[in-house]
Amino acid sequence: MPESSSSRSRKSAPTSAGKAVAVRRSSAVRAGTTAGVPAVAPVTPPGPPGRLAVRKTYKLFIGGAFPRSESGRTYLVDGDNAALASRKDARDAVVAARKAQPKWAGATAYNRGQVLYRVAEMLEARHAEFVACGVPAAEVDAAVDRWVWYAGWADKIAQVHGGANPVAGPFFNISAPEPTGVVGVVAPASFLGLVSVIAPAIVTGNTVVVLAPAPQAAIILAEVLATSDMPGGVVNILTGHPAETAPWLASHDDVNALDLTGVTDPALAADLERTAAGSLKRVVRPAGDPDFTADPGLTPMTSLLETKTVWHPKGF
């Protein structure tokens, strides 16, 4: 009898957790000695004295999963542990990116736009988390806006960057932009910069392996991507020292383009550019220090596109 009354009271307990606890405790006390059931000890409210801190380890983001570095290495960033990516993590990330690429490029432009917009929604929802890890609120706003702006371009870039060509002959001649493939990206340290290099690459159907120098914001962004509709492998994020991993991406035969926006050391950038020439990669290397708050224009997207031109006979 006391048992059933307690379960009924729990079932009918109001939604507030505090009240539910109160009801349970009082019914247990009532049941207490008579049914031989020991009374439940009062629940300690969560608070600083009795509770251990749950600290976060910032891991890598490869193929939609969050593995630790293959090397087992971590490094401290502002008191947080972050994974220190190795060349084999870069290799695995390229494999994941290559695997995801055909399906992502094959999705309709409208669908890619929707997925990107969904990512922007999730970014907005995690606004406070980015601010808590040190990104200024205005920069988070700008990043969300930037992401939405690129989401809109998904089904428009082909009209602006491609189209029918007038030719002297009985042909219908059309040029269409196609994604370059797998893009290795060395991201800038700022969050707006990170968003400004990832979004233009993936909106057109590329997949990316991003070397992010600022782990916290980058991995929170990875959590956003993992909980939105973005297919695993489209964006892969490696944290650590780009100087260590970037050369492996530059020389990798299965990487089609390299974005060096975040490389601050000109000697390293020149080196990477030379290495990338070995496999005829496209290389994006903006002159000077880019201002990410300015209107980016179409160049970030168009520099990672190939043009396919089709001659279609007509009038026979």
């Binding site: 290799r91 390229v94 492996w248 020389s251 990798h252 035969d253 299965d254 990487v255 070995g278 496999s279």
Partner: peptide, 13 residues
């Protein structure tokens, strides 16, 4: 190819 050249190879080749 990875062992002889020192960089990762791709299936396109």
């Amino acid at each position: 190819t990875k062992l002889t050249t020192g960089h990762y190879a791709g299936p396109d080749y």
